[in-house]
């Protein structure tokens, strides 16, 4: 997940026998204390993972076990019937809509935010500071108040219940924070590299595609993941814009599925949640560390 860092090395040091300067006495209690912290960390990890585990666990249980006197903690002798019930509903067509909206949002948001980040980080121009401030303030707008006008807007453009319409609103919702993240990454690519390439006879376009863009790839991945998660998970705007049942996105589908089956089919509901959550989680595990450094580099900026 993370490559070694200065802090890790520092904290590892007292435990290392080869550290000549370290006094002998403080080593032992400190090691014991560290073991205590290790244990605490594992307990906390269990607390944070439990709901996820419980979702997966419940999704494999037959109905009589899920409503037992005592909860079943391990799905031994479980069943896949809940998943069968999910696929019998309109899960797959919903998945298609969700994928279309998400991919369109990610593509557009990345492209637009990248251009803006380039402007903010590589140029000093009038209005630059106000734009950065606006990017922050735009995120404070209470979205619930805008729904009506956004609904009317899309209605006027005949874009209600359409992938394009919802994506447009999503792009506007994610693009401010995407700019914020990408700006940090662009700041991290030293200008001198580009300039050196120019001196060596590259055209500006060549310098950009050969030098800058490859160095920015991790940042683009990180921001793309952010946009992906937002669009994939968004619920409220979809509730307002996608009013027709056949145009539902996955979160909407999960809610109607939950309401239709409340208190009767928790296994099915959990199976639906698993299907929405697990692919994203796996994907996220791989790219996360780039994301966090991106979020922070906007603030710390080296």
């Amino acid at each position: 997940m993370s490559t070694p860092t200065t802090v890790e090395e520092r904290t590892d040091m007292p435990g290392r026998p080869a550290a000549p300067g370290a006094g002998r006495r403080p080593v032992r209690p400190r090691r014991r204390r560290r073991r205590g912290y290790d244990l605490l960390a594992l307990v906390l990890a269990a607390v944070w993972t439990f709901p996820v585990y419980w979702m997966i666990n419940s999704s494999f249980l037959p109905i009589n076990r899920i409503r037992g006197e005592t909860p079943t903690f391990v799905p031994v002798g479980g069943t896949l019937s809940a998943y069968a019930r999910v696929f019998d509903s309109d899960f797959l067509s919903t998945l298609r809509i969700s994928l279309a909206v998400t991919l369109l949002t990610v593509g557009a948001a990345l492209l637009f935010a990248f251009l803006a980040a380039l402007a903010l980080s590589r140029f000093r121009f009038r209005g630059r500071k106000s734009f950065v401030l606006a990017v922050l303030i735009v995120q404070m707008i209470p979205a619930e108040g805008l729904f009506i006008s956004q609904f009317k807007l899309l209605e006027g453009w005949q874009l209600l219940n359409s992938v394009a319409g919802l994506s447009l609103l999503y792009v506007a919702a994610v693009v401010p924070f995407t700019i914020w993240m990408l700006r940090g990454f662009v700041n991290g690519v030293p200008r001198e590299l580009e300039e050196a390439a120019l001196v060596d006879g590259c055209s500006p376009a060549q310098a950009f595609f050969r030098i800058t863009l490859p160095l920015l790839a991790p940042g683009l991945v990180a921001s793309g993941v952010y946009a992906f998660l937002q669009a994939w998970n968004e619920f409220t705007l979809a509730l307002v814009i996608m009013t027709r049942p056949e145009q539902m996105t996955l979160p909407l589908w999960l809610r109607t599925f939950t309401e239709a089956n409340r208190a009767s089919d928790w296994a099915g509901i959990m199976a639906g949640s698993v299907l929405i959550a697990v692919p994203v989680m796996i994907f996220f595990l791989f790219v996360q560390h780039r994301m966090t450094s991106g979020l922070v580099s906007g603030a710390v900026k080296g």
């Binding site: 944070w48 619920f235 979160p251 999960l254 949640s273 959550a277």
Partner: peptide, 18 residues
């Protein structure tokens, strides 16, 4: 970190349901 990540990546609607 993996535990935290799972919680982070979980879609809100899914975690609310859980």
């Amino acid at each position: 970190q993996i535990g935290l990540l799972l919680a982070w990546a979980m879609p809100h609607l899914a975690s609310l349901t859980v």
